[in-house]
Design a protein around this nucleic acid. Sequence first.
RNA 1: GGGGGAGCGCCGGAGUUGGAGAGCCGGGCCGGACUGUAAAUCCGGUUCCUACGGAUGAGUGAGUUCGAAUCUCACCUCCCCCA
Length: 400
Amino acid sequence: MRQDPNRLSFEIEARDGTARAGKLVTQHGEVVTPAFIPLATTGAVRGLDTDEVAALGYEMVLGNTFHLDLRPGHEHIRSLGGLHKFMNWDRAIITDSGGFQVFSLAHGNVADEIKGRRGSAGNHGAILDIAEEGVRFRSYLDGVERFMGPEESMGIQAALGSDIALVFDECTPYHADLDYTARSTERTHRWLDRCLKWHESEGPPGQAVFGIVQGGVHEELRRSSAERVSAAAIDGISIGGTLGRDKDEMAGVLELTTPLLSVDAPKHLLGIGEPDDLLNFIGLGIDVFDCAVPTRLGRHGVALAPLPDDRFRMNVRSPDLAADEAPLVEGCPCPACARHTRAYLHYLTRAEELTAVRLLTLHNLTYLERLVRGAREAIAAGRYEEYRSAGLAGAAPWSA
RNA sequence: GGGGGAGCGCCGGAGUUGGAGAGCCGGGCCGGACUGUAAAUCCGGUUCCUACGGAUGAGUGAGUUCGAAUCUCACCUCCCCCA
């Protein structure tokens, strides 16, 4: 860990048990924590313009090194003034390194891999080789062979000009055996060193770097990775990897890992963000989350809702809502809930109107923003556990 | 009134012209999935029943045939053309 306010500062303002509320100060403004970070993988939060994302209260988005390099290309974005200017977003940006894309190109999505399915996104031939130097793969856009290693990833993130760069890592599959996961995790640590070395001499001065803890579901590997990453000259820690086949296993991995991380570091949990996960893992001291769930589910006709028995999901396409004149979620301040009925939203999703995608995306992002905002207030008030258990039991985020 | 064409699943197509297929492609509908996002995406089901099995089935009815969606006859419905 290092603390260089010219790159990033993190201040913990309140603690409640292991949960904490704080403030991350980046080159593009403050991010109050706990925070949820919407994905803008390709330089856009799907369906929304950046002013809308800001209006929801979000202070940081996540862009992706891999996708932005394939299209439109990092030199192109650099020549247009960097990613902030390109997408007209003057708040903070964290860029993922591309490590996860190696996983998803090979295995499809996380659920497919864990359940042993070949996902539709699983593209067998896309990853050609994973070796010490880096990864050879084929572009899904034109089939051209490409290479990305730690230096390439950091170079692209430098060109994009993100406020926080993530080190290049390998996200080990759930089904990888202990031996593979051990060797991969060690290689990820060597990649961490190479990323930092590159960034030290060639990285943008104001850009912070987060290390990534791997180790799969294996206790010893998680332990050594947590210690290894905590000891590095990084500005924050992201926890990565597939975390288990179910929520209990994921909680176990995080309960093991989080106490081993340096307390002062901002802690980012990669890729996790269902409502109950946020409630539980904020409790473990996670400060920052990112996740595809709110935006993806919004496009797939699902609204986040305080329904613990339904995994906090309401299927807006369900025939049950066809004539339901209630708001989507009572009390929610988003435009979908404030202005429309379930019946109308149901109809829009069936008609495949773009408006349905936008409204459900706005709703889902509002829901998670309110959830983390409520958590922050509860931590400050010293009643986080109460907030957490009420939320898990089905209290709306804005009702506490 | 005369001539021609077409009728099968919830809907629309295609195709089959003597060896079945409850078959193909869309759509709709029903359900499932989705956690560092290539895909507003993906997967499954959708005649009936007493349901790891069974029964019906190519407009209706009869006929030819070992065997009919296919050939024959009658009827019904729809479409086109001519009066």
